[in-house]
Nucleic acid binder design. Structure first.
Length: 290
DNA sequence: GCGAGTTACCGGTGGC
DNA sequence: TGCCACCGGTAACTC
C-alpha cells in the first residue's frame, strides 16, 4: 500500500531516469480498453483509452513531482504544457526498464496496464494488480476539482496552522480524530499506516472526537505525523503487501512500525484492539491510548 | 450548493 | 485443496 513516503521514493527514483525524455507511444492493456467498452473507467479516468494513447505520444516529460500521494508528470508538446496525474491506489507501481520482460516479479508482470515506449529506447511501465490506481490526463491541475482541495504538503510550514484551523470547523467536531487526520482536505498524505503510528506515539485513542483534543495536543499530533512520515521516507517507505520501488525493491519502514498490524502493544504488552473508523480498520492499544 | 452517506473499482490473501 | 469473505484510497454518485 503506497502512502506518501512510498510515493516520494517512487518520484525520487523516477526523476533521474525519466525527466527530459520523450514518449514515443503509449499502449494501454486489453483490460483497460475492454473496461472502457463496458462503461467502466479502469485506471484511465475521464478519457477514451484510444485518445489517451494518441494524445500522450510525442510528449516530453519535463518534470516529475509528488503532491500528497499523487505523482504529477509534467508534459510538453508543441510548447503547450499538460500534466499526467498518477495515483498508485493500493497496488500500483512504476517501472523503468529496457524491456517489459525485465519486470521480474510475476504479479507485476501480469498486471501491466500502461506501457510508455520512450523515443530514445526503453520503457516506462505502470503495473497495478488490483487496478485501484488511476492515470488522469489534464490540461492543468485545476481541471480536476479534488486536486485543488488538497491540504498543503505536511512539510509545508503553513500546514500545521492549516490543520489547526480546518480541524476546528464544526463539520469535523464530532468526527473521530483518525478519520480527520486521514482526510486529504485536512492533512495531505496521511494514510492508515502513519495515522495509526502517530496516534499511538501520542497516546491518543483513534476514535476520540476531534473537539475533545486540545490545540496543544493537536500540534503535538501534527508534529508526530510529520516525524513519522520523514522517518519513513528515510527508510525507503513501508513494504506492506505489494509496494515496490521502481527497482522492484522493498522498503524497511515496516520494521519500525510500532502499532500498525501489531497484536501486542510494544509499550505495555497489552493485546491491541481493532475497530472500524471511517470505514478503515484501526489498531490501537486500549491501555496506552485514551 | 454543500455535506453526509453509499457505491464502484479489484484480486490476493487468510481463514475455514 | 478449494471456496469465499475481507480489505482499502479515492472519486463519483445519490439524497
Amino acid at each position: 500500500m503506497p502512502e506518501l513516503p512510498e510515493v516520494e521514493g517512487v518520484v525520487q527514483a523516477l526523476k533521474p531516469k525519466v525527466e527530459g525524455r520523450t514518449i514515443q507511444h503509449v499502449q494501454l492493456s486489453e483490460r483497460v480498453h475492454f473496461s472502457f467498452s463496458e462503461g467502466k473507467q479502469c485506471i484511465v479516468k475521464q478519457a477514451e483509452p484510444d485518445a489517451f494513447e494518441l494524445t500522450l505520444s510525442e510528449m516530453t516529460i519535463t518534470k516529475i513531482e509528488r503532491r500528497a500521494k499523487y505523482i504529477f508528470f509534467h508534459l510538453l508538446k508543441d510548447e503547450v504544457p499538460y500534466v499526467l496525474v498518477s495515483h498508485l491506489g493500493m497496488t500500483g507501481a512504476w517501472f523503468v526498464v529496457n524491456s517489459p520482460e525485465d519486470i521480474n516479479e510475476a504479479k507485476f508482470q501480469k498486471h501491466i496496464h500502461a506501457t510508455f515506449k520512450m523515443a530514445d529506447g526503453g520503457y516506462l511501465i505502470y503495473s497495478d494488480i488490483r487496478r485501484f490506481g488511476e492515470l488522469r490526463f489534464l490540461a492543468k491541475i485545476e481541471d480536476h476539482i479534488p486536486l485543488t482541495k488538497m491540504a498543503p504538503e505536511p512539510f509545508d510550514e503553513l500546514a500545521c496552522e492549516f490543520f489547526i484551523t480546518k480541524s476546528t470547523l464544526p463539520k469535523y467536531a464530532n468526527k473521530a480524530v483518525k478519520e480527520v487526520i486521514m482526510d486529504g482536505q485536512v492533512i495531505s498524505g496521511c494514510g492508515n499506516i502513519y495515522a495509526t503510528e502517530a496516534l499511538f506515539a501520542q497516546k491518543i485513542h483513534p476514535a476520540r472526537k476531534m473537539n475533545r483534543i486540545s490545540e496543544k495536543r493537536k500540534r503535538a499530533l501534527f508534529e508526530e505525523i510529520v516525524a513519522v512520515l520523514r522517518q519513513s521516507i528515510e527508510a525507503g517507505g513501508s513494504t506492506i503487501s505489494d509496494y515496490r520501488n521502481i527497482n522492484g525493491e522493498a522498503g524497511s519502514m515496516q520494521n519500525r512500525l510500532k502499532m500498525y498490524g501489531k497484536k501486542i502493544c510494544p509499550a505495555c504488552e497489552t493485546a491491541t484492539s481493532q475497530m472500524t473508523i471511517g470505514g478503515r480498520t484501526s489498531s490501537f492499544c486500549p491501555n496506552c491510548q485514551h
